[in-house]
Amino acid sequence: MSRPGDYENGRDWLRAELADSLDEEIEIELEDSLLSQQIAEIYDRAHPDLMRRSDYLRALLRLQAELIRLQDWVVHNKEKVVVLFEGRDSAGKGGVIKRITQRLNPRVVRVVALPAPNERERTQWYFQRYTPHLPAGGEIVLFDRSWYNRAGVERVMGFADDRQVDEFFRDVPDFERMLVRSGIRLVKYWFSITDEEQQMRFLTRIHDPLKQWKLSPMDLQSRVKWEQYTKAKEEMFARTNIPDAPWYIVEGNDKKRARLNCIDHLLSLVPYEDVPSEEVTLPDRVYNKDYERAVLPRELYVPSKY
């Protein structure tokens, strides 16, 4: 990290710090660019109206600054916020979650991505494994997939029978109304992509060694069962889109626009505002003329290869 003393004046240092911040975002964006030339050309033809990276980064940084204001408001007012991110495999849920949390305090904003239930959890009340992760006052929890697994993957892949699915649909509206009555602000997003777009994204994962870990046998089966997932999604909307906790659909074929639109919409749902804060001042360093810094052995240091 740069230090003020490395530059001639404070303005140069601030400029360098901003450059570091942009580099961090560009580094994340490069994840979407490590494709074979052939796949990249196919992707570009399928997305002729891609947003310019400079426009995207400016908009994203502005929205991330607003997310910090939202975070401060949540902490100050002891608010409780839960955001569910659902959608087909490769729809972009993880990408928007990463951009939301990127500059926020992990002690305030937590991401919950639960693995498949174990033997004990399969014998519990269905919602029981999710309730320990709900927020206390002053917290935001982002669920990367949620209790709606039962309406989607568990149903389509045969991990839940018809009786369990019907019981879920009967229970979930009451469960979510209970959350809202308890003071939780509950927001539900569904990321929607086309059949062709999902196929394209799966191909990029197959050909990108940095993303192959994202592909599981379950993901590949979701391609085979596209129509079953569509029917399950439609019934889920019909039976769980309640006034207390409505669904919001994010059109996800364009990753950059989907991220910006989702963050902007989330900000619009919460009446946050600036909160009182104490002015931060840097205290003077205390110097002890008798103190001498110890010289540590070289083997304790990480090798400087770069």
Rank of each mutant, 00 (worst) to 15 (best):
V96Y: 05
I28L: 10
V153L: 02
W147F: 12
V275I: 02
A16W: 05
N105W: 06
V165R: 07
N261W: 09
V187Q: 08
D55A: 13
A136G: 07
E25P: 01
E251M: 08
A16T: 13
V111C: 02
H47G: 07
L282H: 10
A19M: 09
E29A: 03
D32Q: 11
D284P: 05
P4V: 10
F159E: 11
F175D: 03
Y43Q: 09
Q212K: 12
E292R: 12
V141W: 13
Q164L: 06
R15Y: 09
H207W: 03
F175T: 11
D195N: 14
P48N: 11
I242F: 01
I193F: 04
Y56H: 13
M1S: 02
I39M: 04
L84V: 12
R181P: 08
R239H: 08
D290Q: 10
E66F: 03
F169E: 07
M157Q: 07
M1K: 02
E25C: 00
R181N: 14
Q102H: 12
E41K: 01
N118Q: 04
A19R: 13
H207M: 08
D44Q: 09
G158W: 11
I140R: 02
E273Q: 14
G152Y: 01
D32I: 00
Y130A: 03
Y272H: 14
L296A: 13
T123A: 15
Q102P: 01
D23L: 14
F175W: 06
P115G: 03
E8T: 14
D219H: 12
A116D: 05
T131Q: 01
W247C: 11
E235C: 00
V153W: 05
